[in-house]
Design a binder for these strands. Structure first.
Lengths: 339, 339
DNA sequence: TTGTAAGCGTTATCAC
DNA sequence: GTGATAACGCTTACAA
């Protein structure tokens, strides 16, 4: 069965294919009768314009390249979902390539995307430098999501991780906590570094001495956090609260405490970072810094859409906000935590 | 800056563009010297073949259409990730459209995908009938994921939900439980129906009477499950275990019990379905039926790849397997559950 | 308003 | 082996 083309419906409607193209795209006025005939033929054949040919002809592929990072994190998954949703009602479709959070891999992924003549690029996280990006993406409209790339020209949509770390820690301090453990994220990861910076700032601002021994190893996974908290408990260092660099780590911490029969929040309070879906159903429900992941993807894709239509867009710094639930308790004056 | 084409590098290498095409695709032998010159020019210009033009010329877009359903479920997200990963090292790229688990929306999404001349289709879940699919996808290689479409011709990759429901329930029964509540999934959802069928089968097989009052409303969300379990507790009906149609529902159930100070698993046991990442870190770690979500996406995309290369593929029924953790306890002879 | 014809960047079919 | 040249299906000047 031959695929039906614009020419076929032109024949049936007794017009030239230019005219068909015109009604299909609304590029110019066409006599109502002919338009009607064309539309009729279009329906009759169930005609689907060949986007590939169209792209080749006018240079726009109506495709957005999305660079993802397969790290199986609910946060990044939500961003991708947001991107898909944001593009859903536009004529653009997202095409995905994975960068594996690894420079060379990301570069070749972007090149592949460019080979497909995407009209714009959405880069979710990743390890590329601002220079890398500007060099590779040249004049392709590009928006970076979930990461701030220090470059005057690159629009980014990201949350203020320093601030997020700060408000979480401050909340614990306000609740009387002084001996607060911090579960770090991946060592080199900027988000992790920033959240820790926020943690430190809150301490400094409150004039409280930060105990370095309470800064624990982490890598954003629950299992690693569980190990670290286990070790902390065995060290017999005093602590009354834990701030985890992400919710997954908070889950790990929670489990470690559970195993040792340490009550949350009675004996130890916990704050996380992300507010992933499950966090509201932890026992007790987790107090955490909410990152609007899906909204970020959505926002970025719409912004790229604007960019493609010539409207300007400048970086957008979102603030995380503290979701207060039940995993933090005010420290009792005579602390009853284990020592 | 003009984009460099195959013609440009042909000029530099002093050959015709046909020859360039030949070395780029390895379609025919080319004199080593010329080949070298062509490759050199290619690198010099940083030439990226235009996939769009290539597709138009040879009829293959090297693109796989993926129909997703934006339901923000970790299970479906993991499938998408698996698809991306599975295609990562092939020449194919996935392009995503959302069907919103709604027939007409899915149809137009697939049509859009076809308009983009995708070489194959991956349908994740969804509401389309087998007839719908065969009609719309015609002779486009198609694989359905996470759903069995009863049609001789449609290859599917899915897990046996009836069996999953059965083994979970049987496990509870073997542990002495008789009064087992079931939290249903979305009423019309086939997975939900199947898991319930498995639940019933286990009862029947054991000759135990199923108490219909213990079959609770659900919709695969934690919040709904929490409400249902709350209501159950207030009803003062006896129950010693809960089987939730998915992990999210199990989380909701867990929280409801936590609020009423009902111990898990001491007083009530819980089994979930999915084994999403967080489940291993619930307190206590959740015993659940593991669905290999990512593997399914991976498997399906590779299978589609085979299909495109002419190799046959027949439906693959995967079995879920019970991840035994700590949310189930053997029922004490003198039951100490609340009555 | 409409048709003709020239691209868009490749691949594929021929000859040589 | 290699080079013309004709597709591929559409858009878009340019004419009429």
């Amino acid at each position: 069965m031959k695929t039906v083309t614009i020419q076929d419906i032109a024949n049936v409607a007794n017009v030239s294919k230019s005219t068909v193209s015109r009604v299909l795209n609304g590029t110019a006025g066409v006599h109502p009768d002919k338009r009607k005939a064309i539309l009729a033929a279009t329906h009759k054949f169930g005609f689907q314009p060949n986007v590939v040919a169209r792209s080749l002809a006018n240079g726009r592929s109506l495709t957005i390249g999305v660079l993802t990072q397969n790290i199986g994190s609910p946060f990044y998954d939500a961003i991708s979902q947001g991107v898909i949703a944001g593009l859903q009602d536009s004529t653009y479709s997202p095409i995905f390539m994975d960068g594996q959070w690894e420079r060379t891999s990301e570069i070749s992924a972007i090149k592949a995307l460019i080979g497909r003549r995407v009209d714009g690029l959405l880069l979710i996280g990743g390890a590329l430098s601002g220079n890398d990006i500007s060099r590779i993406c040249k004049d392709l409209p590009t928006i970076v999501i979930a990461r701030q790339v220090p470059s005057r020209k690159l629009p980014c949509v990201f949350v203020d991780n320093v601030d997020g770390g700060y408000i979480a820690t401050k909340y614990l301090i306000e609740n009387g906590h002084r001996k607060i453990a911090f579960i770090q994220g991946l060592p080199q990861h900027q988000d992790a570094i920033d959240r820790f910076a926020g943690f430190c700032r809150a301490f400094k601002e409150s004039g409280i001495q930060l105990d370095r021994r309470l800064v624990l190893d982490g890598d954003f996974t629950a299992i690693k956090a569980e190990c670290s908290v286990n070790r902390l408990c065995e060290s017999r260092l005093k602590f009354t609260a834990i701030f985890a660099a992400n919710d997954a780590s908070a889950f790990g911490a929670r489990l470690a405490l559970y195993r040792r029969n340490i009550g949350v929040p009675d004996e130890v309070s916990i704050v996380g970072f992300d507010d992933q879906m499950e966090s509201a159903f932890l026992t007790p429900p987790l107090t955490t810094v909410r990152q609007p992941a899906q909204e970020m993807g959505n926002l970025a894709s719409r912004a790229l859409f604007d960019l493609l239509n010539g409207k300007p867009f400048k970086s957008q710094l979102l603030k995380g906000c503290l979701q207060i639930r039940e995993s933090v308790a005010r420290l009792k004056t005579r602390s009853n935590h284990r020592d």
